[in-house]
């Protein structure tokens, strides 16, 4: 593939609590190439958003990076101070949050917020920045941007506000946008519009997207590659097409089986029994072992490393050469 933009190696995010350290993200590694869309799926609490927050350096204390490396465009950024990190934020790495209704400051006109962001990153005077802001609003599909630029956030609908948020994220012309469930709070009818808007704008600019979501439909439509996360770890990572058509990790299989399809044979939707373990109660070995149908001896002893299978990598002993023969049904 093309040049690597972001490389994460063995990232650990942990929370010190009275009863010891809780690991919310446990040795996650992946890469994002320039202009690539990487989808990250998983249940709530799987560590998707924390991974995103760790990359842009906005973990809420007491949460912290407990190990590993984040390398962005050749530069290590996980150990940068807040002040050193700030020039990167918005300019190189931008982030979009889940709820557009609360992402915009209610007391400032959207134009003021755009101009402020533009001027933080690009050297423009007020007039130029305002023209740029209108262009951006136009690009994200806000009708009559010359007049709407002076409106306050509460004068926009949810979908329109998310468009403004996207304009704000694009204002610094970043190389990577971390989109943390950008459509979850929106009406279903608007979700597809916003996703295709985001995808097209990033494609034009060559901006990479790390798309965090639990909506498989969104991932399938948008992402080049996808990673499935489970209790702070990557269960499987690979090309979106392969992963959806031919999931390998038992958890991915369950996840894909739970998507309703209009075509094809009408089977019952699969559900994965049980729920994700709590952080203070992660089972030994593979953390999915209590819920896994195909569990066998090594799963209780040690967690599997990511094993390359075809185009994907899977963290499951089922695909380990050593156990292939000994595998139980």
């Amino acid at each position: 593939m093309s040049e690597i933009l972001l490389k994460i190696k063995d990232l650990i995010v942990e929370f010190p609590t009275r009863r010891g350290l809780l690991r919310a993200v446990d040795k996650v590694s992946f890469e994002i190439s320039k202009g690539e869309v990487l989808g990250i799926v998983g249940e709530s609490g799987a560590g998707k958003s924390l991974t995103g927050a760790a990359i842009i350096g906005l973990l809420e204390p007491p949460g912290r990076i407990g190990g590993g490396e984040i390398i962005f465009d050749g530069q290590r950024i996980d150990n940068l101070s807040d002040e050193q990190m700030r020039p990167l934020r918005g300019k190189r790495i931008a982030m979009i949050f889940q709820d557009p209704l609360t992402s915009l400051n209610p007391l400032y006109r959207i134009g003021e917020q755009l101009v402020e962001t533009i001027q933080t990153h690009l050297s423009m005077d007020n007039k130029q920045a305002r023209i740029r802001a209108i262009e951006l609003l136009d690009e994200v599909g806000i009708p009559a941007p010359e007049t709407r630029i002076d409106a306050y956030p509460h004068q926009f609908s949810g979908g329109m506000r998310q468009r403004v948020v996207i304009a704000l994220a694009l204002a610094g012309e970043p190389d990577l946008i971390i989109a943390d469930e950008p459509t979850t709070a929106l009406d279903v009818s608007v979700q597809a519009q916003i996703i295709s808007l985001l995808k097209n704008l990033c494609k034009e600019r060559g901006t990479a997207i790390m798309l965090i979501t639990h909506d498989m439909g969104v991932i399938a439509e948008t992402a080049d590659r996808m990673a499935v996360m489970y209790s702070g770890q990557i269960a499987e990572i690979g090309k979106t097409y392969d992963l959806i058509r031919n999931p390998k990790h038992p958890y991915s299989v369950g996840l894909m089986g739970s998507i309703p399809a209009i075509k094809g044979d009408v089977k019952r939707l699969v559900q994965i029994p049980g729920s994700m373990p709590r952080l203070n109660n992660i089972p030994k070995g593979c953390s999915f072992n209590p819920r896994c149908e195909k569990v066998f001896e090594p799963c209780y002893i040690k967690r599997s490393p990511l094993i390359d299978v075809g185009n994907s990598s899977v963290a499951c002993w089922l695909y380990d050469e050593e156990y292939k023969g000994a595998k139980k049904k």
């Binding site: 842009i56 906005l58 807040d82 002040e83 700030r86 020039p87 990167l88 934020r89 918005g90 300019k91 931008a94 982030m95 949050f97 709820d99 609360t102 992402s103 915009l104 400051n105 209610p106 400032y108 402020e116 962001t117 933080t120 990153h121 948020v165 704000l168 994220a169 204002a171 610094g172």
Partner: peptide, 22 residues
């Protein structure tokens, strides 16, 4: 703690702008 402060920080605004402006 609000989202718009997080978003303001994510946009790379200076600490001053975030704390005193927003």
């Amino acid at each position: 703690r609000t989202d718009y402060i997080k978003f303001a920080r994510a946009r790379g605004l200076s600490k001053r702008a975030v704390n005193f402006g927003h």
